[in-house]
Design a binder for these strands. Structure first.
Lengths: 326, 326
DNA sequence: CTGTTAGCGCATTCAG
DNA sequence: CTGAATGCGCTAACAG
C-alpha cells in the first residue's frame, strides 16, 4: 500500500484517517488512488491497539426478535453512534452461556462502551458488576441495584403493573390470572411485573393467585390462555407479562366464544403498536412514547468524558393505558 | 499481570491461551491466581493482530425484530460458533448507511467470517462483491447472483409463491391483491415474491394487478388490508409478503365482518408458528422446517479450510402450505 | 510538507 | 521448563 503510492506508511495513515496534518493535494490523491485500487481498509485491530480506542459501541440484547422496543433502542443507538463516528456491534444473550461469552468479549475490549438491555436472569448480577469494575463505560437498562460505576435506567414496572391490576379489581374482576415470563416463575421472590400483580391483589385482600407461564412466545401464550379459559372456574381477567402474549390471549378467548372484555378482560405489558389494531384494542402497561435518545446519550456522555462521570440514573415513566380489552 | 505472578509475559500467554507448552503446575497456578485477582482478560485487539485471526464470526441481519426466522438462524450460528470456540457479533443493516458501515467494519477485520442475511436492497450487490473479493470467508443468504468467492444460499421464493397464487386462482379467486414489502415496490422489475405473484397471474391470463405496500409491519398491514377490503370492488384474496402482514389482513377482514376464507382468502409467506394459532389457520409459503445448521456449517467449513474451497450453493426448499385461510 | 521511529499487548520463535 | 526478543499493522511524536 505505502509502496504503491510511493509514500511512507505515516502519510498513508494521515490521509486515510483524515487528520489535520497538511498533505500535498497531489500526494493525498496518490494515496487515495492506491487505496482504492488495492481495496485497502486499515486494520481495526491494529488501529485500536495503538489508539486504545475501538470507536465502537456494543449493544447487548436478550435476543433478536425479543422485545419489540429493542428495535427502537437499537435504532436510536445506531443513529447517535453514526453521528459521533462510532460503529455498533450487537451481542445476543439468550442464556447463561451467551452471557458468559458476551462478558468475555466485552472484557476483551471489543468496544469502548456498552448499552446493556437483558431481561431475565441470564446475565447474572456478578458478571455485570465485574464488567463495570473493569472501567468499561456502560449503561444498564434493568432493575439491577447496587451496580457501581455505570449508568442505570430503571423502569418502575411493579408500580405500573400494580396500577393495571388494581384497575381490573376496581372494575369488578376477582379471578385474575397472571401469565408470566418463564424466568419470573423460577425466581425465588416476585419482582417487577409479577410483583405488581401480587402487590395489587394483596392490597385488595384477594387471596387467589393464578400464575402461569406462556408469556415468552405467542403460541405458548395462546395455548396457556386456552387452557386457562377452558377450565370450569375460568379467570375473569388475564394480565399477561407481554403485549404479544396478551394478544394471543384475546385470540384464545374469541376462539372459545368468549367476549373480551365482557367475559374476560385482558391487559398486556409493553405498549406495542400492535395493541392498537387488535380487536378489541389492547389495554396495556408501558411507556407512552418509545424513545431512547436520553438513554443513548448517557452512554456517549460517558464515552466522551475525560474522567468517569458520576453514576447517573434515569427512571423511565410507565403508565397504565386503558383501552378496549379491559 | 506478568509481574504480579512473577513470571514472563510469555508464560502468562501460554497458560491463559491453553497451549500445549509444558508449564509447571505451581507456576500455572500462580498465573491463574494473579489473573483472577486482577480480573485480567487478554486484549483481543492485540491477540488478533498477532494471530491474524479474531476467532469471531459476524452475523449480518436486516434488523432485529425483522424476520422471525432470523432468530433460528442466530441460534444455530451461536451454537456452532460456541462448539468451535468462536464468538458471534451481529451487525444490523436496515438502510444504506448501515450497509456501508457494516461493510466497512467487516473490511476492518472485525471477524474471520460472515453470515449475511439482508433482505431488500440495502446491501448493494457491489458492496457485497467487494467484500467477497477481500477474501473474507462468507455465506450469503439471498438471491444475489454472480457473487464469486463465497457460498450462496438461495431460496426459490418466486416459484413457491407462484404456486400459492395459482392455488388461489384454481380455487376460483380472481381479484388477488399482493401486499408487498416496501423495497419490492420500488424495484425496477419484479423479483422473488412479487415475481411469483405476477408470474402466476400471467400464466392464467389474469390481467389485473393489485399491488400495495404494507407488508413491513403489522399496523401498516392492517391499515392497508382495511383499505383494500373496504373498497367497493374489494379483492377476493390477499397474498401478503409476510405472515405477519397476512395475519393482520385476517384481523382486518374479520373486523370488517368479512369471513376468511369465505369472502376473502389470505395467504402469507414465511411459515411462522403464529400461523398455527390464527383463526383461521394461515395458509403460507415457506420452509417446512426452520433449520439452518447446514447453512452455518458452510461458514465454518470455509473458516477452517486451509485454502479457499470452491463456492458452494444450497437451495432451500420452500413449499406452499395450505391451511384454513385459503 | 514528508519520512523515521517507537511502541500499543500479545503470540511466538529461539536461547537458555 | 522458562525468559528475552521479535513483529503483527497502525498512529503519534519527532526529525528533517
Amino acid at each position: 500500500m505505502a509502496e504503491l503510492a510511493n509514500v511512507s506508511v505515516a502519510t498513508v495513515s494521515y490521509v486515510l484517517s483524515g487528520k489535520d496534518r497538511p498533505v500535498a493535494a497531489e500526494t493525498r490523491q496518490r494515496v487515495l488512488d492506491a487505496a482504492r485500487q488495492l481495496g485497502y481498509t486499515p486494520n481495526q485491530a491494529a488501529r485500536s491497539l495503538r489508539k486504545r480506542r475501538t470507536q465502537r459501541v456494543c449493544l447487548v440484547l436478550s435476543s433478536f426478535g425479543g422485545v419489540p422496543a429493542d428495535v427502537r433502542l437499537a435504532t436510536d443507538l445506531h443513529e447517535m453512534a453514526d453521528a459521533r463516528g462510532y460503529s455498533v456491534v450487537t451481542l445476543s444473550v439468550y442464556d447463561e452461556a451467551r452471557a458468559q461469552a458476551a462478558v468475555e468479549v466485552l472484557r476483551g475490549g471489543i468496544a469502548d462502551g456498552a448499552l446493556i438491555h437483558v431481561v431475565g436472569d441470564h446475565l447474572a448480577h456478578d458478571l455485570l458488576a465485574g464488567l463495570a469494575a473493569t472501567g468499561l463505560p456502560m449503561v444498564v437498562l434493568g432493575n439491577e441495584s447496587g451496580l457501581k460505576g455505570c449508568d442505570l435506567v430503571r423502569t418502575p414496572e411493579a408500580e405500573a403493573c400494580a396500577e393495571a391490576v388494581e384497575h381490573l379489581l376496581q372494575t369488578g374482576r376477582r379471578r385474575i390470572a397472571y401469565m408470566a415470563h418463564r424466568f419470573e416463575v423460577y425466581r425465588d421472590k416476585p419482582m417487577g411485573r409479577l410483583l405488581g400483580y401480587t402487590t395489587a391483589l394483596d392490597r385488595h385482600g384477594v387471596k387467589e393467585r393464578i400464575v402461569t407461564g406462556g408469556a415468552d412466545d405467542r403460541v405458548a401464550a395462546y395455548q396457556t390462555a386456552t387452557e386457562l379459559l377452558s377450565s370450569p372456574d375460568r379467570p375473569d381477567a388475564i394480565f399477561a407479562a407481554s403485549d404479544r402474549a396478551a394478544i394471543s390471549a384475546i385470540w384464545a378467548a374469541r376462539d372459545l366464544g368468549l367476549s373480551v372484555p365482557g367475559d374476560v378482560a385482558v391487559v398486556g405489558v409493553g405498549n406495542i403498536d400492535e395493541g392498537l389494531i387488535s380487536n378489541p384494542q389492547l389495554s396495556t402497561v408501558g411507556p407512552l412514547r418509545h424513545d431512547y435518545t436520553d438513554v443513548v446519550r448517557l452512554l456517549f456522555d460517558r464515552l466522551q468524558a475525560e474522567e468517569p462521570p458520576p453514576a447517573r440514573e434515569i427512571v423511565r415513566s410507565w403508565t397504565f393505558v386503558r383501552r378496549g380489552s379491559s
